[in-house]
Design a protein around this nucleic acid. Sequence first.
DNA 1: ATACCGACCTGTCAGC
DNA 2: TGCTGACAGGTCGGTA
Length: 294
Amino acid sequence: MPELPEVETIARGLAKRVVGDRIESVWIGSRPQPLRSPAEDIASTLEGRRIVRVHRTGKYIVFDLEGNPALRSWRMAHKRTPAKREAGADRSVRRTQAQWIVHLGMTGRLVVCEPAAEVAKHTHLIARLASGRDLRFVDPRMFGKISVHESGFDPGGAEPLEIGKEQFLALFRGRKTPIKSALLNQKLLRGVGNIYADESLFRAGIRPRRRAATLTRDDLRRLHRAVQQVLREAIALGGSSISDYVDADGEEGFFQLQHRVYGREGEPCLVCKTVVKRVVLSGRSSHYCPRCQK
DNA sequence: ATACCGACCTGTCAGC
DNA sequence: TGCTGACAGGTCGGTA
């Protein structure tokens, strides 16, 4: 479902609602597909911890967690000598921190609701919060992923909104793959998906099938600017709502109204009126204007 | 090392 | 009213 702007919007919405809250207990469903850590690790990592921050990295939502009553009582039970305490000080601080990582895949949603609310079909995890609400993970297609980490989760790739011009150029230099495939490669750039790749290429005037290595410095400079513009505008509008995407407050985004090529096959280009084309590239629909994009 | 392609899932919608 | 096939915002792992 979501790409960087949608995930950013969702993470911001969740931050408003759950930061400062504590996870009291966790229920995990029986489908193993969404779990990227063992269910018992997920439960024991979340339970008793406080959510201190919710943010996005690439297309991942990251919950920074702190504190764990189970460990605190373990420390009380194992009184240490001053020397030992000093040696272990760093480690014990780190021990109380953890991260809960959620990737929404195509259809994943994180819902904050009353515990009495009906449990939607395809609910895979329910976290009961100290404030008396539920945080639920729902995902019909189960392409989403849930895992826990000690800290410092890093999916690799560069953040498209932070990367500088020169680094951006270097990512694509010498690559024979179509530029669209390179944009979708999360190991290069993290967070760009099918919609924003198409929209960025349109704004930069580059056809999706152009080999990355054939792009000039100027092409890549325009692409760098286009990617950042498109993502920033989309975040400002709360993302693109296609079919059923809504943010944490149940609000739809509005960037779909700004799509210039995505989903507009057969319609006139908004710049030159040429009919927008759709081709399949590495299994994904790619939309472009044959006149505006070279 | 790189680059395609199907697999992984369920739901929806168009066409017959 | 069904049935079938195409398609969907994303990764993975196998194979060429």
